Amino acid sequence: MIEEQVIGIVGGMGPESGIMLCNYINSLTPVTKDQEHLSMVLMSFPKHIVDRTAFLDGKTRINPAFQISKVIKKLESAGATIIGIACNTAHSSIIFNEIKKDLKKRGSTLKLLHMPQITCDILGKTYPKVKRVGVISTNGTYKSKIYESTLKERGYEVILPNFEFQNDVIHKMIYDADFGIKASPNIRTKEVKQLKNKTLDFFYKNNVEAIILGCTELSLVFSENPSEIKVIDSTMSLARALVQEASVVNTKNNEVRTLYTL
């Protein structure tokens, strides 16, 4: 008998990101009929998970890790064996380590994937000659240096804007209450397009060879990659890793078999 791996996705950060991750997983799975798709559970409880950047900025003392852990527990009860969190900022050490601590305390056997590390892995495999890398992210990810430290450990030269540009251009593109991606996930507002172009122009002028989309919301507006610069989408990277992990099954003789190789 084959032991099935079930993908569990923590959504709601924002809600469209979890849906996009599911869509990427489906698009990456080589199938000819419904029954060949991977089993997947998405749970999205946006009201219950405080904003990650707000927590990292000290605007709330509530660590979102606690509610994320509760969602993971629900996913495990629903049969999930592999977990992906559809939010880069949730992988900052003060949040992610608390989640891992809770899983260990519960004796959970879930496999929890780390989106930024996976994204950097895929960057290296896809573009082995790239050395100058830029990161587009929320203020929370920017300040916690999730990507910056991981990339530097791997020998990359990391190019980031100063905080004024980060806050007034990149973070605003994502968070602005009137026109930002979070406020209008299904509408490409002219303001977002302008800030996107301004962001790309910064990296062009700084001779960046590749850009990491270090916020899951960015997948919604960077669907068409600029031809002059390489782009690594963290949401797509996590989807690839989840498909790879979920395609490894155990047979009744405890043998391991891989269904799909990406």
Rank of each mutant, 00 (worst) to 15 (best):
V249T: 10
N197D: 15
R240W: 08
E228S: 14
K111G: 06
I212V: 12
T126V: 08
V31W: 08
I2Y: 06
I181K: 08
Y204T: 08
S17N: 06
N88I: 01
S227Q: 11
M115P: 14
G155F: 01
K125I: 11
E76R: 09
S39I: 13
M43K: 10
G84V: 04
F66H: 15
I25N: 04
I9N: 02
L242M: 15
H91I: 00
N63S: 01
S137P: 03
E209T: 00
I62L: 10
A177L: 13
V231L: 08
G140R: 00
T189A: 02
E164G: 06
I85C: 09
S144V: 02
K101V: 05
K145H: 08
A65E: 09
I9A: 11
K152T: 15
S137I: 01
H37S: 06
G214Q: 01
T138C: 14
G107I: 08
L220P: 01
I146K: 06
G134C: 03
T150N: 06
K101H: 14
M173W: 01
I122Q: 14
K105R: 13
E4C: 12
N206G: 09
H91G: 03
S93C: 10
G8S: 14
H91E: 00
K70E: 14
L160Y: 03
V192L: 02
D51T: 04
V135T: 01
K59L: 13
K105A: 10
M40K: 15
D233Y: 10
S237W: 11
K196P: 11
T251F: 11
I94H: 13
A78Q: 07
A177Y: 07
K33A: 15
Q194V: 10
L123C: 05
V130A: 01
V169Y: 04
S234W: 03
M173E: 02
Y147V: 00
L110W: 06
I68T: 06
V256T: 09
G79R: 10
E4P: 07
N207R: 03
N162W: 02
F179A: 09
I170K: 06
D201R: 02
K193S: 10
L113R: 03
V10C: 14
I229D: 09
V256P: 05
M173Y: 03
R106Q: 12
V41S: 11
G84D: 00
P185S: 00
D51W: 00
L151E: 02
E224D: 13
I85Q: 04
S184Y: 11
Y142D: 02
